[in-house]
Design a binder for these strands. Structure first.
Lengths: 201, 201
DNA sequence: GTCTATATAGAGATAGAC
DNA sequence: GTCTATCTCTATATAGAC
């Protein structure tokens, strides 16, 4: 059998996927290194090693590049959260695993996560993003209800918000020790979930 | 004595101050109504009822308009926090007053506060802003130490972050009842401050 | 001192050669 | 399919009349 000189269809598709992923990852790296204001289509193309024309071959506009990065990150978080909810029966351990997932997600690339959040707020969510966000909220709610039977959608949102806020603030202030931050996040989350025994004035 | 037909110096200064304030408030209203991406110098001038040329008579560049808005908001928060720390001896009441101050600040104009935060992150702080932020942190730390003697700068940052995060998330999700939100913020903050009696896994 | 008109720069996006 | 060159738009900021 001679060497085929025309790539098969799925080989081309694989190459196309790789290029798409390179573009998305280039956007991630720019966010990480230089922030949201540096995220221009020309820079994305340059960093991805393709021309601006090629970028627009793969994505209809800038927004869709960011949207795909968002989907990628959210899908990874969803996987992590679901894995956390599989862990055994101890409710405290489950919440601990949930916090770990959130921290891992936020701490893997803290600057990127922060800048992506900033960009996200200015973007309308499409259907797939809404579905992912809802799935994450549901999965988190399932875990939280093991500790706090009244936990609802607002509870899940608050817990995510607390995790993000403490990690982002710590990262901005130059903290780098995840265990110290984990301890603080857990205190806030557990305290939030279990109504304190003392009275609130 | 005839009607003076030339304004005195401090009258001119007062007019100038009023124009400056009108420009800053116009920026605030644009953030509130249309978000950070709509905050252009032309729109600020238009909304303030002056021409773009006049805006640049009062501010050297766009950044300094935003900076003055930031200073205005931070100074107001500092006043509120200091007032909260004056209240009597009960540490829980003091923390409650602190949370109320933060909520009042964030809830007075939630959309504006959120968008201003977004803009802020992309801006380098000047000396006056750094001083204000430090003063706020110190004042909060003084209150927190009444409940938690180990409270340090990171503690104060975390508490502010928790307040902001829960309020912003709630506002984004369409919640409007401040008392419900206050209860959740207090649970998270008090839980964060007092190490729980049960063990953390 | 306030305006209109405009210079300048950089963004997103497209056209058309190869 | 990928590139270079470029269009178009909109932003910040300035110039110069009044």
């Amino acid at each position: 059998m001679s060497k085929p000189h025309q790539p098969r269809k799925h080989a081309r598709q694989a190459r196309a996927r790789a290029t798409q992923e390179a573009i998305v990852e280039a956007a991630a790296r720019i966010l990480e290194a230089d922030g949201a204001s540096a995220l221009t289509t020309n820079r994305i193309a340059e960093r991805a090693g393709v021309s601006i024309g090629s970028l627009y071959q793969y994505f209809p506009d800038k927004r869709s590049v960011i949207a795909q990065l968002l989907r990628r990150e959210r899908a990874a978080l969803l996987d992590d959260v679901r894995a956390a909810s599989d862990g055994g029966g101890d409710p405290f351990a489950a919440v601990g695993a949930l916090v770990d997932a959130a921290l891992r997600h936020q701490f893997a690339r803290p600057a990127m996560a922060m800048e992506l959040e900033r960009v996200e707020t200015g973007l309308a969510m499409d259907n797939e993003e809404i579905a992912l966000a809802a799935a994450i909220e549901t999965a988190i709610g399932n875990i939280l209800r093991r500790l706090d039977p009244q936990a609802d959608a607002a509870t899940a949102r608050d817990v995510v918000a607390i995790c993000r806020a403490i990690v982002n603030t710590a990262a901005l202030a130059g903290e780098t020790d995840p265990t110290r931050i984990r301890e603080r996040v857990l205190r806030a989350v557990i305290g939030y979930l279990r109504p304190p025994a003392f009275s609130i004035p």
